[in-house]
Design a binder for these strands. Structure first.
Length: 302
DNA sequence: GCCCAGGATATCG
DNA sequence: CGATATCATGGG
């Protein structure tokens, strides 16, 4: 085994590592992390100029997470803090789940999910470009195919490092995608529209007119949503998906999501998928927790 | 072969 | 403004 450094990260209450890994395991085609047994491997970006850290994450025997930084014999305190902060954000450690559970206990749709997935936290997508691209890629196609496209996209335009025989992929940076033409992505079965949207978003980010910090600085939910939906290829669903997974706004709500509809349909035993107006009624008690409700409902089917 | 998929946009009435 | 057509490709 190569040299490595071990870090320990405290976990909040409640938190289920098992449910988190179950979520991460849902596609074997996920290119940005790998799950083997109960161990997770991925790259974690570092500060400007520094190379990303290749890490192995598992559950520590006496609570908490054990993170092994692979291939580094020494990791500065600052780098350690960066890795810890990344993981805390990825698994949403700073949210107090108890109010959500109190609300969900009285909700006919959510009550079953919070028992079944107890301790699951909303897994995030820290990188804005990745979150936007993943939303665009996932539009109107089934998830299995979406993962196939994502893998092809990452392996075609992303960078990778090899540690201990394992390949770690990094999501492509906007500058690379901004220089492409839609035809370049045709061979990976990316449709013309998706390619066009991906390149458009990449250009905005590469030229500096779109970034996570500026969006968050807008403060107001509606203002951020409006800025996103003003971008070609980003409608209400994608905007709310990104607000939820990347900007971590608790009231983000991709209400038009087909997966959400199918989960509700299954839970209610209904013949047909619910109308948007019905969902809006069912979600009246979710105020401030729409994002978590959606994440938990997704877990029923995916 | 058919229906559906973690939608968005353009167009029409 | 709300409804409808079109896109575009694989999964099951």
């Amino acid at each position: 085994m190569t040299e490595s450094v071990l870090l320990h990260i405290e976990t909040p209450e409640p938190f289920s590592y098992k449910e988190t890994v179950n979520y991460l395991r849902r596609s074997a085609n996920e290119p940005l992390y790998q799950v083997e047994g109960d161990t997770v491997y991925r790259l974690i970006p570092s500060g400007s100029g520094e190379k990303p850290a290749a890490v192995e994450i598992r559950e520590s025997g006496n609570g908490g997470l054990l993170v092994r930084v692979i291939g580094e014999e020494r990791v500065s305190d600052e780098r350690q803090r960066g890795i810890e902060a990344y993981i805390r954000e990825w698994f949403d450690f700073d949210t107090d789940l108890l109010p959500f559970y109190e609300m969900a206990e009285k909700d006919p749709l959510l009550v079953h999910t919070i028992g079944r997935f107890h301790g699951l936290r909303s897994v995030g997508i820290s990188d804005l470009f990745e979150a936007l691209c993943w939303g665009i890629i996932g539009q109107q196609i089934n998830l299995a195919f979406a993962y196939t496209l994502k893998r092809r996209f990452v392996e075609a335009y992303g960078q990778s490092v090899v540690r201990e025989g394992r390949t770690f992929w990094q999501f492509p940076v906007p500058g690379i995608i901004a220089a492409l033409k839609p035809e370049d992505m045709a061979s990976m079965q990316m449709t013309g529209k998706k390619s066009e949207y991906l390149i458009g978003v990449a250009k905005l980010m590469a030229e500096g007119s779109l970034d996570k910090q500026s969006l968050l600085a807008l403060g107001d939910f509606a203002a951020i949503e409006k800025q996103l939906t003003g971008i070609r290829g980003i409608g209400p669903w994608t905007a709310n998906y990104v607000l939820m997974r990347c900007l971590r706004l608790p009231n983000a709500f991709p209400i038009a999501d087909v997966g959400l509809h199918n989960s509700i349909k299954a839970l209610t035993g209904s013949e047909a998928k619910p109308a948007i107006s019905e969902i809006r009624r069912m979600a009246e008690g979710w105020k401030g927790w729409e994002s978590y409700a959606t994440f938990y409902l997704w877990r029923i089917l995916y």
